[in-house]
Design a protein around this nucleic acid. Structure first.
Lengths: 327, 327
DNA sequence: CCGGGCACCGTGAGCGCTCACAGTCTCCTT
DNA sequence: AAGGAGACTGTGAGCGCTCACGGTGCCCGG
């Protein structure tokens, strides 16, 4: 930097000024500095800068999930991708961190406290995530993607409208002529488990027989198959099923096929997520699309606002129905 | 840090020593420092440390891919996840960066030159990636995942044995009684396009009719369907098809189904990747598994060696056949 | 013609750490 | 008993930047 200053015939201070806002710099020396930087191939040392500004320019993307399920789900990948692109456009970096076990969680906390990151995007699918509260205590800006913990400090979150999407799908199945609806719900401590089931009930009210609700153990194909089998047992004359995720729906489709029920002839099947897998099934899955790109955009916007010291509000984004062939 | 030193009754130097290796520190003052750190809740300032050590502790994970295909493929997600975990265990962070367009590539280069990262994991699926050479010029350690560019400077790479896997599958189809084999190959500038086709030819030699090879335009379900349709036209009596990726195979399965051919009754279908989708298809896909966890492990090992100033060699890891129902 | 305001610029201090060096103290060897 | 080898410790310098401050010089109004 001193070299650049010398070549440009100015001082460190002026170089610093053009590096940042570049206000109060004459166009002559601005050009000179630019040229000198070009000549020398100068690049700022971010560490030195961070040391004094106490900002790192990086954001942590924390995946608070058990490792197995983690990337099965293309939804996460897409979210991460869009966040990276958006953050990158602002000159910010995205640091990927896992928080699947105590060690990893400790590392995340350490990172946040150490000021390595200016903020945290916490992708948490489970209620009452202990990391959320702990992170909040560090004082680092945090925005949660998914569901905000019911108890604990309130922090801004961004989520797709799970409940509304479930209502949409349930109503659609009704409109398509289904009369005996069932559902495969996700684990109860996840938004997919609680909210989507709630949406289903919103539409159907008390008219849901006991056997018409099956809980999947996890979000896997196998769990979907098992849950569907239980449904076929407990509610044999069902004519439509709303499945709380596409992955589960794949399993449900398999179980239905094995039981000799045709889709959508005998049974209508609706999924949720619109993941890549949805168009690959046979028949292709009618499902609910989460506005992933918009979730990502809101996520970074809220976080950036938080970092800037503002107090943005939480956001819930509308979901839409994608009609394919399974319903 | 000065505070910690004071409370512990030692000097900055000693605190620094316990922070790093902690050699040549008496157990008395070691304990005192530890206790003082606990009391004050001290955490090191990495920026200050990086400023003097010229190491950042972070590694860039660069995705040199057009954005659309990016996360369709769960393979990438798994790779990233494992790398993150492995790197994290060493106290290193993983910075995700995209390099899908010129702007993004420039950002990556800037990052590397600026010393923000100690090394780069470049996930490049295309030959002759300009980023590889440019990155190499910055002097930052780089290891490539996938295929090393044919021309250009040689840099270490880690890859799964595509060609061997293709041979494995082709031989397997032969062993299962197939006599008229065809293949859906990927785009020629990708390892999936070149190497896997080469493996297919290794086994079959010159005995492959013209109509038995179809090139998919990209790695999408649609492209797979289109390629399969061409095959059915150009080589109607085929009894087995080796498809260069699972995603393509999903499309092929659909085309076969539409043409009234049963799988595996009329036609055996073999995929490649063993991605999550492979067990979701109907019938479940017999495919080639890439040793993802091991690729990730080797990737970080090679990079860490490179960072330490060693000169590790490139690695090609064996693939295995996963037998399901499609063949 | 002079003084105040403004745009621009240079300078010093200091961010929090590490590293090399020099010092002290202990203990062992001869 | 003296000397040397270690083990341990304190100190100063300096990493490359930003920020606040105090200068210049210029223009304009009184």
């Amino acid at each position: 930097m001193e070299d650049v200053a010398e070549i440009a015939g100015v001082s460190r201070g002026t170089v610093s000024r053009v590096l940042n806002g570049a206000n109060h710099v004459s166009s002559a020396s601005l050009e000179a500095v630019r040229e000198a930087m070009r000549q020398t191939g100068y690049v700022v040392n971010e560490s030195a800068r961070s040391l004094v500004t106490r900002r790192s320019g990086a954001v942590a993307f924390v995946l608070s999930e058990p490792p197995d399920r983690l990337f099965e789900d293309p939804v996460l990948g897409g979210l991460m991708r869009t966040c990276t692109a958006l953050l990158g456009a602002q000159g910010r970096g995205l640091m990927l961190m896992l928080a699947g076990n105590a060690d990893e969680r400790e590392r995340v906390l350490h990172f946040a406290r150490g000021g390595h990151v200016d903020g945290v995007l916490l992708v948490s699918m489970h209620d009452g995530d202990p990391l959320a509260a702990a992170l909040h205590e560090t004082g680092v800006p945090v925005v949660i993607c998914g569901r905000v913990p019911a108890a604990g400090p309130l922090m801004p979150y961004v989520a797709a409208d799970d409940r509304g999407g479930a209502r949409l799908m349930t109503q659609y199945l009704l409109d398509r002529g289904a009369r005996r609806l069932a559902t495969v719900a996700g684990p109860p401590d996840t938004p997919g488990g609680a909210e989507r089931l709630a949406g289903f009930r919103d539409v159907l009210g008390e008219a849901v027989p006991d056997g018409a609700i099956a809980r999947a153990e996890s979000y896997s194909i196998e769990a979907g198959r098992a849950a569907m089998d239980r449904l076929l047992h407990g509610y044999p004359d069902l004519d439509a099923v709303f499945v709380a995720s596409d992955l589960l729906a794949v399993g449900a489709l398999q179980a239905l096929h094995a039981a000799g029920r045709s889709v959508p002839g005998d049974v209508l099947v609706g999924g949720f997520d619109d993941s890549a897998i949805a168009s690959a099934t046979m028949p292709p899955l009618t499902t609910i699309r989460q506005p992933l790109a918009q979730v990502a955009a809101e996520l970074v916007e809220v976080l950036v606002q938080l970092i800037a010291g503002r107090h943005p509000s939480s956001r819930v984004l509308p979901t839409t129905l994608v009609r394919r062939e399974s319903a």
